[in-house]
Design a protein around this nucleic acid. Sequence first.
DNA 1: TATCATTTTAAACAACTGTATGAAACAAGT
DNA 2: ACTTGTTTCATACAGTTGTTTAAAATGATA
Lengths: 236, 236
Amino acid sequence: MSQEETTSRILEAAGQVFADRGFKAATIRDICSKADVNLASVNYHFGDKQRLYIATIKHAHQLPSSQFPIPQWHAETSPETKLADFIQVTLSRMIPKGKAPWQAKLMMREMTQPTLAVQELIKEYIRPHFDLLLSILRQLVAKQTSEQQLTKLGFSIIGQCLFYRFNQPVLHMLVDEEMVDQHFSIEQLAQHITHFSLLAIRHFTEEPNDPSSILSTPITEQYSIGTESNTNLPEN
Amino acid sequence: MSQEETTSRILEAAGQVFADRGFKAATIRDICSKADVNLASVNYHFGDKQRLYIATIKHAHQLPSSQFPIPQWHAETSPETKLADFIQVTLSRMIPKGKAPWQAKLMMREMTQPTLAVQELIKEYIRPHFDLLLSILRQLVAKQTSEQQLTKLGFSIIGQCLFYRFNQPVLHMLVDEEMVDQHFSIEQLAQHITHFSLLAIRHFTEEPNDPSSILSTPITEQYSIGTESNTNLPEN
DNA sequence: TATCATTTTAAACAACTGTATGAAACAAGT
DNA sequence: ACTTGTTTCATACAGTTGTTTAAAATGATA
């Protein structure tokens, strides 16, 4: 067996096992037996379990990213179209469709329970993706929009997308299957998120409590918390 | 030490350890030493590790819910205010503030990697919370808004909130600490999400590709995917 | 075929884990 | 003070884990 075949078989098996069970609960014995290689192969080829894990994470995010690339945009492509594309690609990469989505599972696991691998993941994969989103948003909002406002806008969009990845099990328990089948395809979700977000962004010029807000009434008076109705929220 | 004190100290310690490390990686020795009880106490009081875990999950979701209750609203309270309150409470329950909210951590862990405990969790806790959100949204949208549209709206809001829970580590690596301190407090986030969502909801009357959309151009032409710019998205 | 570096294999090791046990400590009632 | 039921304690055990090792197998090169 060539070196490359062994390592790639280990990586494939490791991806599934790590995704299923997490770093600690996954055992090298499981991985090796699934990969049909000797127990010592992992230590020989990767050094130790930790480094195998990092290699697996790296290996994992390459496939979905190349499978669903960001389209090449023309110079005259509208930012709205770019945003729609961005959301569609993001959702496609994250939501299981057809075959084994263990890559996504693994990455999400890594994001909620970060290990050492998360730093590399962010630097190589998440950060550039997020920066792309911010550059699109910058074309959609008023020029004076601050960096932190833009960042929050970005998180509002990413948050909507991530919901359908993280909470797949919850989704299926809250929404009956028929509705999921009819209305929750990737395309439909992408369209909803795009629509929802563009509606908000279009009217999103200033911080809610900014005096120059377009809102007739400052938002803090319009729908503030605890002023009239809420007396038992803990202080903070 | 009374029986109740011992068990409650174990539950408290177990919650933190399970939340931090997950079921498998958490060790009874860790838990007992953190709780300052004897190693054998867990097996004596709970039988085994598995049953301790289930007891911990049940015990976990009680505190934050009672600590951050939904305010009692007046009859004339506006739905906007209700939504603002809802978002604030949701965020407060989910985001670490001061003390470690290991309860939320545990619940989120349970949602992404559901064990047997997840069903009870949804039925008793998540479902009623989500239904409340839907009832608020129903007051904010046009009457003919369909159930599935309402559900997606709900997920768009919950998704934004959950982002800041799930991706706390990612957030801190994408945004520098100064900006987090200045602009990402629970109150500021709640205000942003409320603002963002209300802007969208206010103009959200119809499905994007519905002919009666308020958009001048059908959304599918305005910012559709793959029509002009994108030729290398995989078919689906 | 003989040589040599690379890779695989089986076995072993040491550390750690959940669980069990029997003695000790404790608390309460008499 | 004594008894009794409960809880704690130190310790032991058996199984699993990641890792190491040295010998065997492999494959390319001459």
